[in-house]
Design a protein around this nucleic acid. Structure first.
Lengths: 248, 248
DNA sequence: CGCGAGATTGAGTTCTCTCAACTTCTGTGG
DNA sequence: CCACAGAAGTTGAGAGAACTCAATCTCGCG
């Protein structure tokens, strides 16, 4: 899988389909001597959402599941009259798979930049899956991997006590996820604001800024505006105590 | 579903099978005119583990999936030479379902009290599921619900910034989960130590103790040793900003 | 009954937050 | 293309929350 680089203004940096977590569903299945490709009828490809728009809102009926083709999302819940960031999603990742057997979206999703999504109708997918065991199996695999991923992220971000560890964990989690989607783990763009990151980690934005600076002065990372470069993956991982990415 | 109460010394307080998250697998399936019950061959029921023993260790090969019949577990990861609590499991809940398509356990599981587990071989389960669509569908449902549950817990515990909110979220999360398994949401035993709770929430044990006391003085909870009683569910939920349990 | 793990309490320190001022960046309209 | 306005980012100072350390208490178990 080739490592992908920064997007240009004109051509969105679409994730490679084979690096997308929805690819098992998009790959044609062979049943007996026939090959069925459901993507034509089932998947709406690369639906455009302008920066700032909501893909769906908490409480909306959930009829589709989404995979990000290009762009990034911020997920938020409405709590006590205000909003709180609960996660981010990057290209190749799925959005709200857990709504597969639930009726309503439990959070909102907002585009952090111009974004393209692939969409599948839940109904259609479940129908086909119930009829064709191979599709069911693949869907199971997708959901299983998602479970794993969510759990791994939760472990990483949950277990780290002080702010410095939380920040390091956040950076590494993003790095790991970018690498899973075929992008560089060592260099990526933080499409969310410092305030978003702070909100997500339960810190103040000033603390986030100060710790970015501290990690930079320790030469573990380099950060210029929204551009993040990891300089010393090993030390950063040692910080967090979990090895996700093997730095050659 | 009848609400269950505290266990006695002699008879373990087994969860009702129909409240167990594994019940879809344990319920016989009808295929055509035949009914198949795999539980006899597939499920090892109520395997006993003494308090303090490990069910499995991080890095062990994962060949079984577990459901708790009676007792509670603490899940931990080994990080930087020490251990960190990442979650707890109560009767009716599953343990490490995410290992279904992975080879190794990503964390350790230790019995917090004398515990009985039901076990299913992954291989067997996957084999049967791949042959019988109905089983596959049920398994899918189990995994889906698990995904939902993990996500809901993560949302609750993640989004709450200060220590008081974290503690309230922890209490409510346990209450919610006990109610799902058919026990009282308002009264249950904290089988883990204060230190375990502190470790889990990323706080010091002194802070946990002081905040329990504070919530008690505010008459939201009553806590006597390990016995937790929720006195004002509404206020507690308002604290956290999410309504999980409807208090009549 | 005595031991030891766990729980509790107090005091002082450190970390993180809040508030406020200021700078930089970004996007929009002239 | 520049000017401007608003959003985002940065920095410093003081306040408050949570931590650490240490002493003491309690309870379950042998």
């Amino acid at each position: 899988m080739s490592v992908k680089h920064c997007k240009t203004a004109n051509t969105p940096d679409y994730v490679a389909c084979d690096a997308c977590k929805l690819s098992p569903i998009c790959t044609p299945v062979n049943v007996g001597e026939h090959a069925y490709d459901f993507t034509g009828t089932m998947v709406k490809r690369r639906h455009f959402f302008k920066k700032g728009t909501f893909i769906f809102q908490q409480g909306d009926a959930a009829s589709l599941i989404y995979a990000i083709s290009a762009g990034t999302l911020k997920l938020l819940v409405h709590v006590k009259g205000s909003e709180r960031v609960i996660d981010f999603r990057i290209p190749g990742e799925l959005v709200d798979i857990s709504s597969l057997n639930e009726g309503l979206h439990t959070y909102s999703a907002q585009a952090l930049e111009d974004t393209y999504l692939c969409e599948i109708g839940k109904e259609t997918l479940n129908d086909i899956a119930s009829q064709i065991p191979q599709v069911q199996g693949r869907l199971m695999n997708v959901v299983n991997k998602e479970l794993n991923s969510i759990q791994k992220s939760a472990m990483l971000l949950h277990g780290n006590v002080n702010s410095e560890e939380k920040i390091a964990a956040f950076i590494l989690n993003l790095a790991w996820r970018y690498s899973l989607s075929g992008y560089s783990a060592a260099q990526f763009k933080l499409t969310m604001t410092r305030t978003d990151i702070a909100d997500y980690l339960g810190l103040s934005k000033e603390t986030v800024i100060r710790l970015f600076k501290k990690l930079q002065q320790a030469e573990l990372i380099k950060i210029r505006g929204k551009q993040m470069t990891i300089l010393d993956m090993d030390k950063l991982q040692h910080f967090v105590g979990i090895k996700l990415i093997s730095s050659s």
